[in-house]
């Protein structure tokens, strides 16, 4: 079965955000304009994603992937017991990772902007907040990447490819859930 789940905005958002974060975390000089420009670009992406979460198509909406600890535990149980149940939209654990990353990146861009303002220029805790949030985001991205590989193998659905093409290709024998 082939299901259209990710609209073009969601896909472009995902990969642009990934590229922007990688560039600023690993390459650009934090004191130079390019770092700041990419940071504001990420802020704009986050703002658009929030709007899209409120008014976008079905699988892009926050209402289709609310934070749900019980469902997340259910997915963990699937992992442990080897039950193959495919979620068409974001999986419950995936949803938690999305909220974690959105909130963490909001802290990163907010503190990063603050560091350039008269009020917070040179204030040490703001710089430390920025750095701690970036480190947390880096750890989260590492966990996200490994989890996506893991879940792709477990469920037989190639998740990275779905984020490129927009379609989840679900094996016929798999159980499907929302």
């Amino acid at each position: 079965m082939k299901a259209k789940v990710w609209d073009p905005f969601v896909r472009v958002f995902h990969w642009t955000l990934a590229a922007g974060f990688a560039a600023n975390a690993l390459v650009t000089n934090p004191e130079k304009d390019l770092h700041h420009l990419i940071g504001y670009g990420i802020a704009a992406l986050l703002g658009l994603r929030v709007l899209w979460g409120l008014m976008g198509p079905r699988y892009a909406r926050f209402s289709s992937f609310p934070p749900d600890p019980a469902a997340a535990m259910g997915q963990m149980a699937d992992v442990v017991t080897g039950r193959r149940r495919v979620h068409l939209g974001h999986t419950p654990l995936g949803a938690l990772m999305i909220y974690n990353l959105l909130l963490t990146l909001l802290v990163v861009v907010g503190s990063g902007h603050a560091m350039t303002t008269l009020a917070f220029w040179g204030i040490r805790w703001v710089k430390e907040l920025h750095e701690v949030a970036v480190t947390w985001a880096e750890i989260s991205v590492a966990v996200h990447v490994v989890a996506v590989i893991w879940e792709s193998r477990r469920t037989g659905v190639n998740l990275p490819r779905a984020m490129v093409t927009g379609y989840k290709e679900v094996p016929d024998e798999a159980l499907t859930a929302e």
Binding site: A25, V134, A142, V143, V145
Partner: peptide
């Protein structure tokens, strides 16, 4: 990819993330 290599990948990614963060 085997489970073991996945775990190794995770450990490596975490280590890179943590050390690359603030050199």
């Amino acid at each position: 990819m085997t489970t073991r290599s996945l775990i190794a990948t995770l450990a490596l990614a975490l280590a890179l993330g943590a050390t690359g963060a603030r050199a």
